[in-house]
Nucleic acid binder design. Sequence first.
DNA 1: AGTATATCGTTTGAATTCAAACTATATTTC
DNA 2: GAAATATAGTTTGAATTCAAACGATATACT
Lengths: 162, 162
Amino acid sequence: MRNGSGRSRRGRNGETTAESIKFGPLATWVGFNLRMAQESAFQAFSRRSQDIGESPGRFATLTLIARNPGISQTDLSLAAGRDKSSLTPVVESLVRRGLVARKRMRGDRRTYCLNLTPAGKKTLGLLTRCALRHERNLDRLIGGRDRKRFIEILKKIAAEIE
Amino acid sequence: MRNGSGRSRRGRNGETTAESIKFGPLATWVGFNLRMAQESAFQAFSRRSQDIGESPGRFATLTLIARNPGISQTDLSLAAGRDKSSLTPVVESLVRRGLVARKRMRGDRRTYCLNLTPAGKKTLGLLTRCALRHERNLDRLIGGRDRKRFIEILKKIAAEIE
DNA sequence: AGTATATCGTTTGAATTCAAACTATATTTC
DNA sequence: GAAATATAGTTTGAATTCAAACGATATACT
């Protein structure tokens, strides 16, 4: 069939590749490229982790609970860079499926106290191996020489952008 | 409150009241830091552009239409890295508010043909100035020496991650 | 003590996204 | 030319997120 406006073609594997699209200033802007890279990496990890039945967000949550036993949901949300209300369904799901134990904190009945269960630790182990493969893949693209600086810059953006 | 910005005391275990969260492997993983940086940059641009009444997604859409007059929604979605169904409400909103003109393509009545209206061009101009300030801010964090390589890596991740 | 203020987690509502199913058109095959 | 196949865009449903409002609890101030 005809090719729309003549702007795309069939790639090697049959996927359509936008080939002659003009990106204008988007091509050299950090914001746009950051979004595209994050989206791709996120999707790649989602595919990897879906066999285990978890999402990238729940993986970060499990890791932070493992590394900070007894953490509260608010501190967890700060660490994960998400609003505390986003964490309500995430934690609820992990608790319901027996990966996380949630108790009220002694001395402050507003606050929860989160810990991994043995099942949670096991699942986190699987996810971590999965993440290591994903990271090796990313490393291959970044190259060992630039990796440290690359992460430094990402951290700086996360911490200091206004 | 007892413990202003840090974590709350959790007592007994000898686990001290660490003021800072332990990130474990997340600290050095690309995937996590990419997400945190993208989220921060996205929020920063959202704040900047909200006076104009547009979102980052609609900005990318306007730019791509401006640079590729007559582009179809499917090609647009490929270029913007989003599913075509995500574009339906975006384009609908831009058309309804008179920023984009949408016509059927001659010779293929399935396909739309998108162009900016004068009002769309004006809004894009405002957004572009806004984006330039945002990019200057990012440049300040990245540093001129590393910027080119940084963007190269982001593009590589977006294009080649599996 | 009693009132005002702050914090913790939840609820609700709006956005944004993907994926699959759907419609309408177009092209290809027989 | 009719049937099978492919494509453009929309609809629907599920996730994920933020932000504001809320109830329960805790702390601070008088």
